[in-house]
Amino acid sequence: MDDVLLQEPSLAYAHTHTRAQDAAEPMLPRPFMIERRRKEAGGCFTLWLRDPTGQPFNFRVGQFNMLYVYGVGEVPISIAGDASDPSLLMHTIRGVGAVTDAMGRLKVGDTIGVRGPFGNGWPLDAAVGQDVFFVTSTVGLAPLRGLILETLARREEFGKVVLAYGSRGIHDCLYENDLHAWRARFDMTVYVTAHSAPIGYRGQVGSVAHLIERAEFDPPNTVAFVCRSEAMLPAAFAALEARGVAPDRFYTTMERNMKCAVGFCGHCQRGPTFMCRQGPVYRYSDIQHLFAVREL
């Protein structure tokens, strides 16, 4: 068992930051008002939430909130917004069950409960002076969006900034406007691939791993932030390793069925780690061995 993962904060980068579990009432949802909503590609929708009392909501990119639909239930959702604006929370949600479907029916002006922020967040400081490589696909862009915005806000601190994004088709890129804006920048490279496309499509078709193979960056001096389904993570990491990025330079965010989000209930336990407290962001080399354990 990895003792490192039993300590808290478990990982070197999980230093002091905003954590709801340190607050007095981590189990008590705060009522937020839905200020704006937008239908997204991929069956997703985005909600912008504001605390009607005007209290700021400080968070670190990569943290998550427990969103509560009154009378229905609560689910963990990554914060997709800009951490430099604590007045407005942004969450992108995909309707996959009773709670998220109910969220999808909420309208502007409705109230939603928010507990958080929870978890450790992305360790962007680990990438200072290095190339930064974001690897994701479909709705995985949501947990990385805030990190990308922060990276661009601190642009002079990093080398190359590269994003490899995979979508299922050519009409279901999440945050397509953001992708266009990032691609238009001279200081960021964006590679996009589609799983399949109609005849006549002139862009890249194929796997995200193929994008990693061809992307231009300096592998020994790169920190990679990866957000993909657990099943696809090993393939992404293998492609990064094949390019020469060391496994202690990959970070990923993990998903589990979080319930309490403060490390009491054990729903999000994976081996020796509670994802709600020691995660959801992990250095790959710290959890690599857990991927091989089928029972977890």
């Binding site: 590609a41 991929g42 069956g43 995909r94 996959v96 696909s137 479909t138 709705v139 995985g140 995979g166 979508s167 299922r168 088709g169 009409h171 279901d172 799983h195 194929g206 796997s207 791993a209 193929h210 993909r228 389904s229 657990e230 099943a231 696809m232 393939a235």
Partner: peptide, 17 residues
Amino acid sequence: TETRMRIVELVTEPAAE
């Protein structure tokens, strides 16, 4: 291998409906 992984991708990563 890539084809097999793309089958996994189709099943595990959500797309437009």
